[in-house]
Nucleic acid binder design. Structure first.
Lengths: 207, 207
DNA sequence: AAGAATTACAACCATCCAGTTGGAAACTGG
DNA sequence: CCAGTTTCCAACTGGATGGTTGTAATTCTT
C-alpha cells in the first residue's frame, strides 16, 4: 500500500465537523469529547493536540461556523427591500440548517458576554453594519446595528424555539412560509421607518 | 427552642428557587445537583424525594417560571399601541430579570420539540393569542400567534445574546433604552400593518 | 539509511456526578 | 410515652468523562 502522507488538515477538518455537529446538538456542557472523536473516526487525543481542550474546540467551532455564515448570506441591493430580502435569505438559510442559530444561542447562554475571536467578529459585524448603511443611506450606525439585531433575533430565534411556534401557531403545512413572510414584512416595515426617518433628518438639515 | 414542624413546602420552595437559579445560569446539562442542594441549604436527597430526578426538577422549574411570567406581564388595552406597550413591558421585565428568556432558550436548545407541561402552556399561549385578537379585532388566529412570536423573539433574544448587542451597537449608556424603543416601534409597525390588513379584509366583505 | 521529529492510538487515570442507602432525628396518633 | 410514620442527612456507589501517557507507526532531515 502506498504509505499515505499524514493529512493533518483532513483530520482537523473531520474533528471540527464532528465537533460542530455535537456542540450544535448538545452545547458546550452537554457535548462529549468521546462522541466527537468517535464520530470523526479519530482518536480523541488528537483533539488535545490540535485544539487544546474542550473549550478551545468549542471556540474553534463557533468562530468557523459564525464567520462562514457571514459570507454565505450577504446583504445585497438598496432600500428597505434589500434588508427585507436579506432577512428572507437568512431565514431560509437557518431553516435549511439551524447550526448557526443554535451555536449562537449556546454561546450566549453558556459564555455570557465573553466573546471569542473578537477581532474577526467585530470586523464581520462592522461589515454588516456598513452594508446596512449603504442600503439605507443616512441611517445612523446605531440604528443600522439595531436593525441587524432585530433581523437576527427574528431569524435565529425560531429555529431554536421550535416548540414556541407550535404552541402559538399550529403546525400547518406551509407554516414556515407564513412565518417567513411575517419576518420579511416586519423587517421591511422597520427598515422603511428608519429610511424615512433618515431622509426626514436630511431635509431638516437642508431646510 | 420550639421544635419547628416539618415545613416541606418551604424545603420544596428553597429547592425550586435554587434550581431555577442554577438551571438559568447553566442549563440542564451544566447544572449540578450538588450545587442546587448546597445553595438551597438542603440535602440533595430531598430533590429525588420531591421531584424525582434532575430532568423532572428542570421541568418543574420551567413550568413554574414560564407560567408565572404569563401573569406578571399581561396584554392590556386596544390597538397596535397595546401590543407595542406589551412588548415594552415584556422587554423591561426581561431586562430586570433574564430568568424567563434564558430558561426558554435552554429548553428550546436542550429539549427540542419535546414540551413539558403541555396543557397548561397551551392554555397560556391560547390566552395570549386571544388577548391579541381582542386588541386587534379582525386579525386571524395565526397572524396573532405570529405577532406574539415576533414580540417574544425581539424581547427574549437580547438578554440571551448580550455579546451580539455589544458587537452590533456599542455599549453606550442608554443603549438599553434605545434598543427598547426600537423593539417597541417595530412591534407597533407590525401590529398596525396586521390591523390595517384586517380592516381591509372587513371592508372587502362589506363591499 | 540512521536518527530526529511528528502523528497516531489504546490504555489509563483522577475526578466528578447523578442517584442510592441505611439510619438518626423529628413528628403524630393513641 | 411508645409505636409508627415522615423528614432529613452523611456517606456511599458505579459509571461516565475530560484529559494524559507510553509507545508504535510514519515522515522528515541529513
Amino acid at each position: 500500500m502506498t504509505a499515505m502522507a499524514w493529512d493533518t488538515e483532513r483530520t482537523k477538518g473531520l474533528l471540527l465537523k464532528a465537533a460542530t455537529s455535537e456542540f450544535c446538538a448538545r452545547g458546550l456542557a452537554g457535548a462529549r469529547i468521546d462522541r466527537i472523536a468517535t464520530e470523526a473516526g479519530v482518536n480523541k487525543e488528537r483533539i488535545y493536540q490540535y485544539f487544546g481542550n474542550k473549550n478551545a474546540l468549542f471556540d474553534a467551532v463557533i468562530v468557523a461556523a459564525l464567520s462562514s455564515l457571514m459570507d454565505e448570506v450577504p446583504i445585497e441591493g438598496n432600500g428597505p427591500e434589500a434588508m427585507a430580502d436579506y432577512a428572507g435569505r437568512l431565514f431560509d438559510h437557518h431553516q435549511k440548517d439551524a447550526t448557526a442559530p443554535r451555536l449562537l444561542f449556546w454561546e450566549g447562554l453558556e459564555r455570557g458576554t465573553e466573546v471569542v475571536g473578537l477581532p474577526r467578529r467585530m470586523a464581520n459585524c462592522a461589515s454588516k453594519v456598513n452594508s446596512t448603511i449603504a442600503a439605507l443611506p443616512g441611517v445612523s450606525r446605531e440604528d443600522a446595528g439595531d436593525l441587524l439585531i432585530t433581523i437576527v433575533s427574528l431569524c435565529d430565534a425560531a429555529p431554536v424555539l421550535p416548540a414556541l411556534d407550535g404552541l402559538m401557531a399550529g403546525n400547518d403545512p406551509g407554516r414556515a412560509q407564513r412565518r417567513r413572510a411575517a419576518v420579511v414584512r416586519t423587517v421591511y416595515l422597520a427598515a422603511a421607518a428608519l429610511a424615512a426617518e433618515a431622509s426626514n433628518a436630511d431635509s431638516t438639515l437642508i431646510t
